[in-house]
């Protein structure tokens, strides 16, 4: 007797362009062990036919590494923003609903425009000011391995935007810069040379839409696929910015 092939049922929210109306299409993909959402979308690419047998175009989405380090394939899966490559079908309730993370402008289908996150890294001065890539005949300062461990945790942030989508205060009508770039400011403040620009970073975080727009929903820390302790760093920066704000109020 032929075994009935187990199917995985997808309901995908599609959109042809930034200003088009969203619509849904349903797909079925053959089940196999360790199947994930990206692998399923790849199957749909090979045979772009809906559940009802209607020929359609392949779903558009963004992905690169499929190892949860590049951050590209973030989308909303069953209501929660996450990396599609690491979303195993076995762990998801069916039908699996995919939609773009609408906190960001939609490009097409599940592909979104996250350029705002990279722009934010400019705002918060997200780099260490080195004189140049040339030799300076001088070692970089030693670092306390414990501080370095915290820095490593934050520097694993892959700018995927899960925290941004989860945060109620990040949206297209708010200026809030969001959790990811805030934590990055803390990362550079932790570095012995990066610390020289701490004041500039904190000032940037005190501008409109900065740190103070955080509403403590704390979704970010739950949503972060890299388990970065975002709320803790936000609280630490709250302390730092308060100090600096008071200082500049009285000292200048």
């Amino acid at each position: 007797m032929a075994e009935i092939k187990k199917k995985v049922h997808f309901i995908i929210e599609r959109q042809d362009g930034p200003n088009s109306q969203p619509y849904t299409e349903e797909f079925e993909v053959d089940y196999r062990p360790a199947l994930n959402v990206v692998a399923s979308l790849m199957e749909i690419q090979k045979n772009p036919v809906t559940k009802d047998g209607k020929k359609t175009t392949a779903v558009v989405w963004e992905c690169n590494c499929l190892e949860k380090v590049c951050g590209a394939c973030m989308m909303v899966i069953n209501g929660k923003a996450q990396q599609a490559c690491a979303a195993l079908i076995d762990h998801l309730e069916q039908p699996i609903r995919l939609s773009p993370a609408r906190t960001f402008p939609v490009i097409r289908d599940l592909a979104i425009d996250r350029s705002v996150m990279f722009e934010s890294l400019k705002k918060i001065h997200g780099w260490v000011d080195v004189d140049g890539t040339w030799e300076v005949h001088n070692d970089a300062p030693r670092q306390n391995p414990k501080t370095a461990t915290i820095a490593y945790e934050i520097s694993r942030c892959m700018t995927c935007g899960c925290c941004m989508d989860a945060c109620p205060n990040v949206n297209q009508s708010s200026e809030f810069i969001g959790p990811a770039p805030i934590a990055q400011a803390h990362l550079f403040n932790l570095h012995p040379i990066g610390e020289y620009q701490k004041e500039e970073r904190l000032d940037a975080l005190m501008e409109k839409g900065g740190l103070a727009s955080c509403g403590n929903s704390q979704n970010c820390v739950q949503a972060c696929p890299k388990d970065i302790k975002l709320t803790e760093y936000i609280a630490k920066l709250n302390r730092d910015t308060n100090k600096q704000a008071l200082k500049s109020l009285f000292n200048k």
Binding site: E62, N64, C65, E67, V69, C70, G71, A72, R114, S115, F118, M158, T159
Partner: peptide, 11 residues
């Protein structure tokens, strides 16, 4: 092709 921060070097 992609934001340079998502390049394959990171793998």
């Amino acid at each position: 092709y992609c934001p340079v921060k998502r390049s394959h070097s990171l793998c």
